[in-house]
Design a protein around this nucleic acid. Sequence first.
DNA 1: TTAGTGCTGTTATTAATTTCACAACACCTA
DNA 2: TAGGTGTTGTGAAATTAATAACAGCACTAA
Lengths: 208, 208
Amino acid sequence: MISDKTVERLSQYRWLLEMHVDAQTINLFSHQLASMASVSPAQLRRDLMAIGYSGSPGKGYMVRDLTESIGRFLDGSKPTRVAVVGMGNLGRAIVSFLSGRRSHLKIVASFDTDVTKSGRVIGGSHCYSQDKLEEIIKRENISVAVLTVPSPVAQSVAEKLIDAGIKGILNYAPVPLKVPEQVYIENRDVTAALEKVAYFARQTEERE
Amino acid sequence: MISDKTVERLSQYRWLLEMHVDAQTINLFSHQLASMASVSPAQLRRDLMAIGYSGSPGKGYMVRDLTESIGRFLDGSKPTRVAVVGMGNLGRAIVSFLSGRRSHLKIVASFDTDVTKSGRVIGGSHCYSQDKLEEIIKRENISVAVLTVPSPVAQSVAEKLIDAGIKGILNYAPVPLKVPEQVYIENRDVTAALEKVAYFARQTEERE
DNA sequence: TTAGTGCTGTTATTAATTTCACAACACCTA
DNA sequence: TAGGTGTTGTGAAATTAATAACAGCACTAA
């Protein structure tokens, strides 16, 4: 089984590699890629071992080939169909980030309670009224949702999503969602992240 | 020394506790708070041990008192002064999230290259032209920055921030920033997070 | 061909984090 | 008072993650 953190790092390696595909780099050594990603060379080699990729001593890793291998591993065979729930600033930011790039992550729908937003096309995908959540998710065969709704309703929206068959949620509300364990949750509370940075920033200040 | 993860969990505990202060709950047992936060009771007790807080057997933890203890630990003596750099959708979302709430995290300035944005007040704080970065950060004594600029310029903006004396950066660009090690960096790449969720969602799907 | 170089893949080691388990304590009841 | 119950604080064990170490290979150059 592959760990949480390894998957995250693989995604990062791929991002770095893609820049090098563009830059026509043919191959890279583990210490080069590792240094770009700010990890140890051993860590990088171990991560690649996890997905069964092999480089060759003396040559390192073939950039294009490795990029594709990571892709096959992370993306699977068909695109992941994604919905964004909550079209405030954050929801819109995420839609515009993702649309276009990363073709294997397809944002196929968004939802909002605000009737002035629903019905329109935002960032390339149709925005529906929140009432249609279950209907659309089933019809469009959506498996992953990004949750950017106000925290008081986060739990109840999450439950609706899960009833509709969602398998993974990227949650930006500062609420630790209670969900059945077959559903994968990733919490990205902005306030918590900033508090953490503030704490460690203060530590380094005081150490002077 | 206190770990990364403990700090993050403490922030989460506090959030949960604050809801209970409002709800007039007087005390809570470790298993209750732990279950709300989806961690083990032992984990919770250990985290509180780290900040030197003690409950009492039979009574558990006094909600108000614990909330304040975590606050003293996380927040320090004076408010942390924060800047948001990059006023796209994401930057604005973060500003509006934070302004008002969490009085110890003060967003005192924001920056953008777009001249139609700078000069205005966005979400309660003044938006400056990116040229003024160094000047304002020093003048306003800002120690933490949220970076929401396009990835190609992320590294160079980060360097300017660090030259100006920033001690911690919350980075939303999908670039692993290279910085001196006295500066604390927290990366929150949205695409990477979504790829991770997509990967694990697919795993659970295939397990059926 | 052979010795040398510098890299990979993988095992072994160390470090960090979480869980377990239980003594000690506070409180309640009689 | 004494005995019972249920919780905390924490040392010890278990688990998980990261680092170090090195055998083995591919290539180079004489």
